[in-house]
């Protein structure tokens, strides 16, 4: 893997997510906790579908689609991320057709059941990844932290999470500089040579520990005593509740009734 491309890719991704989350649309204005809850209901319903299910899953596409449109998000970065994750799923799922070769007939086409499970996993993972990314692209880290606090997640963990998020880009740039300096003086090496493993990563680590010390001092100078105080977080309004509840009802209906099958059966009945 090309590590330089990796750095800029990672940084770019976090930057894009951060920018998208700052937009002001009806979806962005929904309370973060409402979006977190909706996402979890969605994922739970999604993964609860049987491994042979395909048609019943399809109506679930309406959730990411509508969020995507109303939040006015660009398709590029999100699609790119999905494409990045899918190969792993394909890698695991592609073996299914080999292990389950029992034949089923669908619309006159003979397929092994393994293909059905494969497509089912493929669709599920695409929808799951999209739902997660849409949550971040419409919420952002600071608002997500507020949602976590409303969920009674201890402040220590939330503060620590925010600090990690805050310093990722900074430390990544530091690592990138170090690697660049290394590769300029060792142009033929593919990766860091064994003789430099400890010193390269170790020095980065020592610098990081020093930085942690300075950050701690900066916190203490502004009255930090181990407790992390935040402003009052806005609670959910009625429209936030309606958002969660109506989506949940929609998902549950999709789970209970195979809507495409109903439509198809109705049509077939009409044709006959």
């Amino acid at each position: 893997m090309n590590s330089m491309a990796n750095f800029s890719n990672t940084l770019y991704n976090m930057g894009v997510m951060n920018d998208l989350a700052r937009k002001d649309t009806p979806i962005h204005r929904i309370h973060p906790l409402a979006k977190v809850l909706t996402t979890f209901v969605y994922l739970l319903i999604l993964v609860s579908f049987d491994r042979y299910e395909i048609s019943g899953l399809l109506p679930l596409i309406f959730y990411p689609l509508l969020v995507f449109l109303f939040a006015e998000l660009p398709a590029g970065p999100i699609l790119k991320r999905i494409l990045f994750v899918e190969p792993f799923i394909i890698g695991i799922g592609i073996l299914n057709p080999f292990f389950d070769q029992e034949i089923v007939i669908i619309g006159g086409i003979a397929l092994s059941r393994g293909w059905i499970t494969f497509f089912s996993i493929f669709i599920k993972s695409g929808l799951a990844v999209t739902a997660g990314l849409l949550l971040m692209a419409t919420t952002g880290m600071d608002k997500l932290a507020a949602a976590l606090r409303l969920l009674k997640i201890p402040r220590l963990f939330v503060l620590q999470l925010l600090l990690t998020y805050r310093y990722i880009s900074l430390l990544m740039e530091e690592v990138a500089r170090t690697i660049r300096a290394y590769s300029l003086r060792a142009p033929t090496h593919k990766g860091v040579h064994r003789s430099a493993w400890g010193s390269l990563a170790g020095q980065l680590l020592l610098r990081t520990l020093d930085r942690a010390q300075r950050i701690y001092q900066a916190m203490c100078l502004r009255g930090f005593t181990g407790e992390y105080h935040t402003g009052e977080d806005a609670h959910m309004q009625w429209r936030d509740f309606i958002y969660v509840i109506s989506w949940s009802i929609f998902f549950v209906i999709i789970r209970l009734y195979n809507i495409p099958m109903v439509i198809g059966a109705l049509l077939m009945g009409v044709i006959r």
Binding site: D142, L162, Y165, R166, R214, L221, E227
Partner: peptide
């Protein structure tokens, strides 16, 4: 009030607002 040499050591919160509010809230 002390301003550090490297502002990155001092701006540890996720948004500027939260960072400036860190001291008063403490």
């Amino acid at each position: 009030g002390m301003v550090f040499q490297d502002p990155d050591d001092q701006l540890f919160m996720t948004t500027i607002y939260d960072d400036v509010a860190f001291g008063p809230r403490n």
